[in-house]
Amino acid sequence: PRDAVLGEEYGALSGTSGLTWVLDPIDGTRGFVSGTPTWGVLIALGDAEGPFFGIIDQPYIGERFVGTPSGAELTGPAGKTALVTRAARDLSQATVMTTFPEVGTRDEATAFAEVSRQARLTRYGMDCYAYGLVAAGQIDLVIEAGLQPYDIQAPIAVVQAAGGIVTDWQGGPAHNGGRTVAAANADIHAQALAVLGSCPR
């Protein structure tokens, strides 16, 4: 009862414990409306430093990605599996995802396009499920712009618990949203920032 709550649908409720629950009941509304299983329910718990517990839940296909201080796991039809991000590789061999082809502002779209040009493969429209794929070691990068805190806090906890890194485009904290990059490892993260970091603020 003393925890704060921040949600997409109901705004912010203040608390006194220093902890905040961050909720997004349907992340990926277009995917939900389209009937594609890329949307999800996002739940995060964190403090002033950012989230340390997160859930990405896709109820239609029965998959739940969970990140805690002790690690990350996927619970699904096949049971429970520990989540570990991909090993380092060159950007030219990387798979990159984002939600919309029209990423953010013109400058942001230009920066993303340059990362995409250098990468092996770029895919669109995966919503929060893309972060689960980073945590599961299936892809290397998710790059977004214009996010809200409730869009990114649960993915931060899941990806980082699996061994990945999530920051803004300058390498700073990402839990307040805005421009974000989720990377499978420090090497691919640095390669992405080398391009994204030059984008005008």
Rank of each mutant, 00 (worst) to 15 (best):
T20M: 13
T110V: 12
Q93C: 02
F52Y: 11
T68R: 13
Q148Y: 13
V115M: 10
L13K: 15
S198N: 15
F53Y: 14
M126C: 01
A157M: 06
A111K: 09
R179I: 06
I43L: 12
E144D: 13
S34Y: 01
Y131G: 09
R117T: 13
R106I: 10
G104A: 03
I152Y: 05
Q148M: 14
T29H: 09
I165W: 03
E63Y: 08
I156E: 09
G125H: 02
L23Q: 14
I188W: 02
T68E: 11
D3L: 01
G11A: 15
D47W: 03
E102P: 00
I188P: 00
A72M: 14
D24H: 11
G178V: 09
S17I: 12
L133A: 04
A119W: 05
W39V: 02
A154E: 11
L133D: 02
V166M: 03
A48N: 11
A182F: 11
A109S: 12
D47F: 00
G54K: 02
G172M: 07
A78Q: 15
W21K: 08
E8Q: 14
G178H: 06
A44C: 07
G71Q: 11
L23V: 15
D168G: 08
T81C: 02
A72Q: 03
L45N: 01
T85M: 05
T122E: 13
T38M: 12
V96P: 05
V5D: 04
V159N: 07
A136T: 08
E73P: 00
V96M: 09
R117W: 13
T105Y: 05
G67F: 06
T167A: 01
I143F: 07
A78V: 07
G76T: 05
